[in-house]
């Protein structure tokens, strides 16, 4: 399971190195999240992002999806009308602790990021033997 973190929290989590970036537009990418068998799948739309502009980080249980857009204005043209705007993408989730973090699979194609998060084998309850004094 993946739980979303609020954008305010996301800002502080994402920029732990303290640097402040100029106010470029940042969008929340639309996501599909579903569980299929033993895997949680997150699909995020990031149109305009090249595959080298995608950044997925996992720190402890915080999963950060970030996409950086290369603005593309055709040369020698002037803007006539805009119905959508370009900007970067950022979304943060917290993962439950039953995700096997070593086996996460990420794939990026046609502006869509697909993450597969396999669940870890059920953790066995640990028995702690109590020594008699």
């Amino acid at each position: 399971m993946a739980q979303e973190l609020k954008p305010q929290a996301a800002g502080t989590v994402a920029r732990s190195n303290g640097e402040t970036e100029p106010a470029t537009l940042t969008f929340t990418p639309a996501v599909d999240i579903f569980e299929k068998g033993d895997t949680t799948v997150i699909i995020a739309d990031m149109p305009g992002v090249a595959s080298d502009g995608v950044d997925v980080t996992l720190e402890r249980q915080v999963l950060t999806l970030r996409g950086t857009v290369k603005p593309q204005a055709p040369e020698g043209y002037r803007r006539l009308s805009s119905e959508y705007r370009e900007g970067d993408y950022l979304r943060v989730f917290t993962l439950s602790d039953n995700i096997d973090q070593a086996k996460i699979n990420a794939e990026f194609r046609n502006g869509v990021l697909r993450l597969e998060l396999p669940h870890a084998a059920e953790a066995k309850p640990k028995k702690i033997s109590v020594k008699a004094a």
């Binding site: 996501v31 599909d32 579903f34 299929k36 068998g37």
Partner: peptide
């Protein structure tokens, strides 16, 4: 076996 949590994409 699919359980949906979020469906935001077009």
């Amino acid at each position: 076996d699919i359980r949906w949590h979020r469906r935001e994409r077009p």
